[in-house]
Amino acid sequence: MKKISILILAVLFISCKSEAQQKEKNTKEFKVQKTENEWKAELTDKEYRILRKAETERPFSSPLNDIEEPGVFVCAACGNQLYETKHKFKSGTGWPSFDRAIENSLALSSDRKLGYERSELLCGDCGSHLGHVFDDGPKETTGKRHCINGVALEFIPKEKL
Rank of each mutant, 00 (worst) to 15 (best):
K2Q: 06
K3Q: 07
K3C: 03
I4Y: 09
I4S: 12
I4C: 11
S5Y: 06
L7K: 04
A10F: 09
A10K: 09
V11Y: 00
V11S: 06
F13D: 13
F13R: 06
F13N: 04
S15F: 15
C16W: 06
K17A: 02
A20N: 02
Q21W: 00
Q22V: 04
N26A: 01
K31R: 15
K31L: 10
V32G: 11
Q33W: 00
T35K: 15
T35A: 10
E36P: 01
E36H: 00
K40G: 10
A41E: 13
A41S: 13
E42R: 02
L43Q: 12
K46G: 05
E47T: 05
I50E: 03
L51I: 10
A54Q: 12
E55Q: 07
T56Y: 11
E57I: 03
S61T: 14
S61H: 05
S61M: 11
S61V: 05
S62H: 02
P63G: 07
P63D: 12
N65K: 15
E68Q: 14
E69K: 12
E69Y: 04
P70R: 10
F73N: 09
V74Y: 03
C75A: 03
A77T: 00
C78M: 00
G79V: 12
N80G: 01
Q81T: 11
Y83I: 08
T85N: 15
H87W: 01
F89M: 15
K90I: 14
G94H: 09
P96K: 14
P96M: 03
S97C: 13
F98T: 06
F98V: 13
F98S: 09
R100W: 04
R100I: 05
A101R: 07
N104V: 10
S105T: 14
L106G: 05
L106K: 00
L106V: 09
A107R: 08
A107V: 05
L108M: 00
L108K: 14
D111S: 06
K113M: 01
G115R: 01
G115L: 00
E117C: 04
R118N: 04
S119L: 12
S119Y: 02
E120A: 13
E120N: 13
L121F: 13
L122Q: 02
C123F: 14
C123I: 14
H129R: 08
G131S: 12
H132Q: 11
V133A: 09
V133G: 07
V133M: 12
F134C: 02
D135M: 09
E140N: 12
G143Y: 09
H146G: 15
C147D: 03
C147M: 07
I148H: 08
N149S: 11
G150H: 11
G150V: 15
L153E: 01
L153W: 04
E154H: 06
I156D: 03
P157L: 02
K158H: 08
E159N: 15
E159G: 10
E159D: 15
